[in-house]
Every structure is written in structure tokens, then in C-alpha cells.
Amino acid sequence: MTRPEPTSLQLPLDADAVRELRSGDSVLLSGPLVTGRDAAHGRFAEAIARGEDLPFDPAGETLYFVGPTPARPGHPIGAAGPTTASRMDAWSPLLVERGLRGMIGKGRRSDTVKDAMREHGCVYFGAIEGTAALLSQCVTSAEVIAYSDLGAEAVHRLEVRDFPALVVNDLYGGDLYRDGPARWRRA
């Protein structure tokens, strides 16, 4: 069986690009994205509850659930592998409602997050766990933009080139964790 070539996508994502994606699609992402893990998401939620601006405008953004390690000399970032996305499930709908177009992580998402994604036009990409050093090679620049006191969990703006990912959840209810194994299950 021949697999199709990955689709190259330019970040930030627009609504048309998101509508074209289907669960199982292989993509190469290029452009700017932001990072955030548990501690940053807690602060995002607190800011939203207080009616304050977030440190970035979520509209059109892609958020990578990662806490990169410090950069080695001559590199923009250290290892940058995905963290478990479900740990952000309590907060993700708040960002999706504000226009977040994409999320990158590993693992399944809750029904609440998937419902918000379908309603507001956001997709969830899976990055391959265990490839942190390889994924960091796709990062061409990195800058802390908020919460520097959080260390590795600070919010970064990354520029990526040909960052490999799979569409896990699309706008149409597709779920690679559910549908992928079913494709290969013997009758």
C-alpha cells in the first residue's frame, strides 16, 4: 500500500485549511506557533476569568503542548517532544472558543474538547512521542513570550519548518485513536 506524501501546511492555519484536513492525514507544519503546558494553561484560565488579555491572541494560532529543554549552544531550542494533551483538557475549550485553530500533543482528547473543536473550527495534531530531539531540529527560532518564571513551561513562540504531525481529530468527528485501529482490525 502506497502512502500519500504529507501535506505541507503554512501556519497560522486558516479556516479553509482546517476544513480540508481529515483524521489520519500526515502533515508538515511550517510557520509560527506557541507553546504551553499545564502551568501556563492554568494562568491562561485565570486571565480569562479576570477578563484580562492572554499573552498571545489565540485566533488562528496553533498551540504545541511542550516544555522544551534548554538550548545547547548554537541551537534555538533543546529537546521538544509533545506532552500528554489530555492534561490540558480542562482548559483547551477556553482557547478553542477564542479562535485557536490547532493543537499539537500526544494522546487522546476528551469529548468536551472534541465538541469544542468541531463547533469552533480547530484540529488536533499528534506528534510522535519519543522523538523530542528530532522534532527540535524542525524549530528554527524560539523566544519566551510569557511566564518566564515557569522555566521549561514558559510560553514560547516557535518558528518551525516541516514539523511532522498526524491529524488525530478533525472537524467531522474523525478520531485517529478510534478509527485507525478499526481500519486494520481483522473481521
Rank of each mutant, 00 (worst) to 15 (best):
E159P: 02
A17Y: 03
V155A: 12
R157Y: 12
G51P: 01
A90R: 15
G24M: 07
S26D: 14
A15L: 08
D14C: 07
V144N: 05
L33D: 13
E153T: 06
E143W: 03
G78W: 08
L171R: 11
F125E: 00
G121L: 10
P4N: 01
P68T: 13
A49E: 12
G151D: 06
S110W: 14
A17M: 03
D175M: 11
L94N: 03
L33C: 08
T35L: 11
L135R: 00
A47K: 11
G81C: 02
D170V: 01
D25I: 07
A15W: 10
V167S: 08
G36H: 03
S8Q: 15
R37L: 00
A45R: 12
S8T: 08
G36M: 05
L166Y: 15
F125A: 06
A85S: 15
T7R: 12
G51F: 02
V155E: 07
A49G: 02
D149Y: 04
G174F: 10
A85D: 00
D175Q: 09
G107M: 03
R72T: 00
P93I: 11
E153M: 01
R72W: 01
I48K: 05
L171G: 08
P68E: 13
E159A: 06
H75A: 09
Y124C: 09
S8F: 06
G36A: 14
G180A: 12
A17S: 12
D89A: 13
T84W: 00
G174T: 04
L100K: 02
D175H: 04
R22D: 02
Y124A: 12
Y64T: 00
D179R: 06
E46H: 07
P70H: 11
T69W: 05
D179P: 11
I128L: 12
G99Q: 05
V18C: 08
A154M: 00
L94Q: 10
G74Y: 15
K106H: 06
Q10M: 06
